[in-house]
Design a protein around this nucleic acid. Sequence first.
DNA 1: TTTGGCCATTTTTTT
DNA 2: AATGGCCAAA
Length: 871
Amino acid sequence: MSDFPDDIPFFGEPDVPATPKPQSGPKAGIAARAMQARNQQRGEPDYLQGLNPEQRQAVETTEGPVLVLAGAGTGKTRVLTTRIAHIIQQGLAFPSQILAVTFTNKAAREMKERIGHLLGGAVEGMPWLGTFHSIGVKMLRRHAELAGLRSDFTILDTDDVIRLLKQLIQAEGLDDKRWTPRSFSMMIDGWKNKGYGPSEISEGDARAFANGKGRELYYAYQERLKTLNACDFGDLLLHPIRIFRKHPDILREYHTKFRYILVDEYQDTNTAQYMWLRLLAQRPSSNANTQSASTQPHSTPNATDWSSEPMRGPHGAGEHSELGVSAKKSTQQINICCVGDDDQSIYGWRGAEVDNILRFDKDFPGATIIRLERNYRSTPHILGAASYLIAHNEGRFGKTLLPQAASEDDQKVHVHAAWDSEEEARAVGEEIEQAQRRGHLLNDMAILVRASFQMREFEDRFVTLGLNYRVIGGPRFYERQEIRDAMAYFRVVAQPADDLAFERIVNTPKRGLGEASLRLVHDYARAKNMPMLQAAEDLIATEELKPKARSALREVVENFRRWQGLLDNKSHTELAEIILDESGYTAMWQNDRSAEAPGRLENLKELIRSMEEYESLRGFLEHVALVMDTEQNEGMDAVSIMTLHSAKGLEFQTVFLPGWEEGLFPHQRALDEGGRSGLEEERRLAYVGLTRAKKNLHIWFVSNRRIHGMWQTTIPSRFLEELPEEHVDIAESDSSYGGGYGQSRFDAVGRGDPFANSYSTPGWQRAQQNRSDATRNNWGSRSGANVERIGYGETDSGFGAGRGSVKGKVIDGELVAKSVSSTPSDFKVGDRVFHMKFGNGNVASIDGNKLTIDFDHAGQKRVIDSFVKRV
DNA sequence: TTTGGCCATTTTTTT
DNA sequence: AATGGCCAAA
């Protein structure tokens, strides 16, 4: 979004008088109250109508720190937006004096819309409402030089970062397979989430990568970013934090500027975000400390000091209360209001610290804590199911959500079983079409998946059904190859130091500039510490390059120089067209005879079209870097498909939750890496999913799912049994459970199938029992149930049953993980076998425990041996 | 230098 | 299943 025009005057904005009406400390309260009283005489403002007492308190307690603990569906967004409207309406601050932070662009957009609505649309946009990152960039652009950057720095996305790291790792002479750029980028990410620069990471962390070269590499990475005039996502927060600490005068300007700070989804803040917030929200006491704070921020154990010890903060309460006192003493306070729900903390993997919300009143003593517990969203059944499920978590505040009154036609939560994911998609599609026939809007329905690969099957199905759908946060427009290439061209034009972009497209389309020539340019650039474009320009004046490469490179450089010259003369969309045209990029795809080519050209057109909404090329590039998503199909009626993560904060009349199987949800990886707390986060994710539904909720699980192209037998998610019976309705006979390879086939295998019908059947119960029965396993017998997704017993004890073996992983005495290891198969080529999904066939070849089988009806497939049975 | 084919690995979630 | 990396051949 170009919500942030580049040229807003920052400090001393003309529209901001030094002191808007009431504002300092206690006075503000009085004035506010006076104003309120006046309003009440006249009848209260519209926007307060219909708020319940708690919501109202959250809106009207404008002064001092406020924490709003808002359960799912309790009107959190409404409170936030109304509060902002209230602040503006009461004249407590101008829109530009309110800092409002959200996590997603979607949330920011929605908030803006709603505030505009509340205020009758007459208010100029709020310049400081946005995501942590977009606000971070905005600040960083203003003070870029203090971070060693120019204000036109580029923002690297994950892909760029990985390519860059790869170069560095190789330059270091390390094996980039043993030490993958990807894993290092994740480490850096983790460090940055905690607020650590290269000098602050622990010895152990530094050693953990590349035999102790971790720190060195991290330094080198930051150095390179500087020479590239670029930063990564983490830097968007880290640089401002550094700047605030080093330059108290700058921080003070922000302190004067922002009267009110609001934070959405506070439970998802990570340490860096927390530090950033604290710096902005907590003015050091204005008396005794001022001097020392401004000159030596790190030497005084007072107000500013917490920021240098991020990780110890959570538990060092003493320090914080001291700080709080001084904050209180200060003459002007910045009023911070955080809204969150510990039960909806689902970003632990990204470094979020739930602790931040749990210790709010220590950080901000005297905080008003308001709990919103009246749920207006879901039926009692849905709410009951969700509450019961989340109660299985240990580490939580614990709160009660009060349901609305039940209504006659309230449906219980439906749990459905399907044979495989294909059937799951088919059945959900049917369900949706039925609802549509009953007059429901597709806009009111959503499918929420755990992992994005699940989306495809639904898309496929909906395409054949001709059902409108919209994917949110799926495979992203801006991640497509052609879009990234085009963007790279634009980046080099807008930001000549962007070597990563330059490298990406110098030889796209092919110009005969291969590795050899490129290396030359690269080395020259490094040696002279100049951008590659500049280096290329220098080199073509010499005899270094081969004639062919030299002329090709000359043309590229000349093109770029010419385009750069057009920056100010042509509109950015026009320029973009010229670039794609003259570079031969469009022609490259036009000449491409592959099936995707037309689509790619279409995407490029779409790209140009979407640029029109932005003021400048730079503004557009920034949008792409930060948002990575386009609005699609806004106007039409369509089912939404998205991940559970991106569904947070949304609500729908009808919600479908497919894929409730062990290994997928809870996700195996969360279990492996997060253990118990990983499981609890998965459960919160389930809770988020359940509470998105207003009226109808359908949960699905399948017994066969294809993972990495191979069929796996799955068992229902443990979360299913954590749902309370009284609120759940098990669909006994779902459409065609078993499908073409029907029930009979199923039984013919003698597969004492645990999920043949539903989980209320003996089969289901047996499965449950299997799970808790820690010693039993069905593997000994070939006709045993296919429960190989789970291992039982001690850690790492194998269960070889002749083919394949199962390892169980026990965490906290509870079985949470397993993996199938490959041991040589005891099948022979030519064996006649039966597979549950594909039927009968002959073994064509064997590769470890993977078999290639010619099926009678299904053709040739590769499957894991444990899924077939000799006949 | 480019291209084609084969092998290995992969996917959790996002700014 | 699909993508990326690597190697051999043109």
